[in-house]
């Protein structure tokens, strides 16, 4: 139990630091921004209660906000995503008692379920984030382009991180 909590704290710190130092500087072709830190919310165990999810999501969003000078934006989006995470997961995974490992990953859920779960969550997050951002300058075509490109880039990086973490746990065994 303590080991799991510690590994989640480590994941939180690493993701926030990576987002602040590396991913916030990336803006591919002027449209695609990787919002990789939401991997933390996606990674929380399947049986996490809604209160814990919401609180952790809010804290995560606020921390990223402090680093990227976007007060409240990521906090709001993360809270919404954390609230909708369990419904999204149960959309593709009707019964959670038949999986061995409660931590969602490509291995513990089957590949197609996990991919659908991740892409739905990322699309939701990117759409919300860029709609909020566009309150400053509104341009519909640019908005749709940014949502699509950022979703794709974030999706690719998150799948990479997922395969990296599962690789590490295999080696440990």
């Amino acid at each position: 139990m303590a080991k799991t909590v510690f590994s989640y704290i480590l994941l939180f710190v690493v993701l926030v630091a990576a987002q602040a130092v590396v991913f916030n500087q990336i803006c591919l072709f002027g449209v695609a921004v990787p919002l990789v830190f939401i991997f933390f919310i996606l990674r929380l165990p399947v049986n996490t209660g809604p209160n814990t999810l919401l609180t952790l999501g809010f804290i995560l969003g606020l921390t990223v906000d402090v680093f990227s000078d976007t007060p409240g934006m990521n906090a709001l989006c993360c809270t919404v995503l954390a609230g909708l995470r369990n419904p999204i997961l149960h959309l593709y995974l009707p019964r959670e008692d038949n999986i061995s490992n409660p931590i969602p990953s490509m291995k513990s859920l089957t590949g197609s379920v996990y991919l659908k779960y991740v892409i739905t969550a990322i699309t939701l997050y990117c759409a919300l984030y860029f709609i909020l951002e566009s309150f400053t300058f509104f341009a519909l075509r640019m908005l749709i382009l940014r949502i699509a490109a950022s979703t794709l880039l974030t999706f690719i990086i998150i799948i990479c991180i997922d395969s990296l973490t599962s690789l590490k746990s295999e080696k440990r065994l």
Binding site: P50, T55, F58, V66, P71, G72, M73, A75, L76
Partner: peptide, 30 residues
């Protein structure tokens, strides 16, 4: 869970739409 959600959302919206940049607290910036 709903009340917690609304509570966090209100805090975020408060931060988001507090427009005067000079009043933002130094702890919540880079």
């Amino acid at each position: 869970a709903w009340f917690l959600f609304i509570f966090y959302a209100v805090i975020s919206l408060g931060l988001l739409f507090k427009n005067n940049p000079y009043q933002r607290h130094v702890y919540l910036t880079s």
